[in-house]
């Protein structure tokens, strides 16, 4: 009986926490269905429900709201920078964790030092470099910005690779495998959780960022924007009362692909790497 009470208390605690965490999200969803276009400050739920926000956002693009274009732009940018950044992170993590070479420690220390500089600081110079290459106001430029420095974020993946037993790789050496084969055939397949983590975080970066995008895509042509700049622009003081609910609808639509992807990947994440290998 005491055990049952404990279990109930445990789950109630989780429910309370989840409730607190979800209040703003629920507000986002219900506001996106509001018929009133500005911010509703008197009631939590809208007084009148409607689908207009979604309809306008998806099918009636105007000069302010170009959601389908923004979504497409961000998606393309995110896919490319995700592929590049995730590979960079895993490559650096493997090289620093599993291989021993001259200058390894020096390289890692250098990475630590570079990481200590605020990213906002280098932004201005990055902008001028890309301008020199004629890549500002282009999606290629943004992909470069998001993925070029990705290798610096290798520490978490390295921490994971550090836990892979040496014996596994040594066994592969004895079987005559090359270092490249070990990387692709032994280490990568058993590192699903960290790959998932890396892929998720690098895919999310372009969806989350707006500072860099705002700096890079400054031509004012709204069809070239990413979702972040577009939605941010809707909350401009002169626009907020006409576009706040559309902003919420956009927020919901953006979150859907990310959540779906996330839940698919979470399966791998939870599975862990218990099967097969020496580990576990």
């Amino acid at each position: 009986m005491k055990k049952l009470m404990k279990t109930i208390w445990h789950n109630v605690l989780l429910a309370i926490l989840a409730f607190i965490w979800l209040v703003p999200i629920v507000w986002l969803v219900v506001t996106s269905f509001s018929a009133y276009t500005g911010i509703n400050t008197s009631t939590f739920f809208p007084e009148e429900w409607s689908l207009n926000n979604y309809k306008n956002l998806l099918f009636a693009a105007d000069t302010v709201a170009q959601f389908p274009n923004w979504f497409k732009n961000t998606f393309i940018i995110a896919i490319f920078s995700c592929i590049i950044s995730a590979s960079f992170v895993l490559m650096v993590a493997y090289a620093t964790s599993c291989m021993r070479f001259k200058g390894r420690k020096a390289l890692m220390n250098l990475a630590v030092i570079v990481n200590l500089f605020p990213g906002v600081l280098s932004m201005i110079a990055v902008y001028f470099i890309l301008k020199m290459l004629n890549l500002t106001n282009s999606h290629v430029g943004l992909i470069i910005v998001y993925s070029a420095g990705a290798g610096l974020g290798y520490l978490i993946a390295k921490g994971f690779f550090d836990t892979i037993p040496n014996s596994l790789r040594e066994a592969a050496y004895l079987d005559g495998a090359s270092e490249a084969t070990i990387f692709f055939k032994v280490v990568i397949p058993m590192s699903r959780p960290i790959i998932v983590y890396t892929v998720i975080s690098s895919f999310l970066a372009p969806w989350m960022d707006f500072v860099m995008a705002k700096l890079m895509l400054n031509s004012g042509i709204s069809s070239e924007w990413t979702v972040a700049i577009g939605l941010f622009n809707m909350l401009d003081k002169s626009l907020i009362n006409t576009y706040f609910t559309q902003f919420c609808a956009g927020g919901v639509l953006v979150s859907i692909p990310i959540s779906v992807l996330f839940i698919i990947m979470q399966k791998f994440y939870v599975e862990g790497i218990t099967g097969g290998a020496v580990k576990g």
Partner: peptide
């Protein structure tokens, strides 16, 4: 886990501005 993850599935500029 999924419920908590939903919070971070919403991009920060949406959730924080909200």
């Amino acid at each position: 886990r999924t419920l908590f993850v939903i919070t971070i599935a919403v991009p920060q500029f949406v959730s924080l501005l909200l």
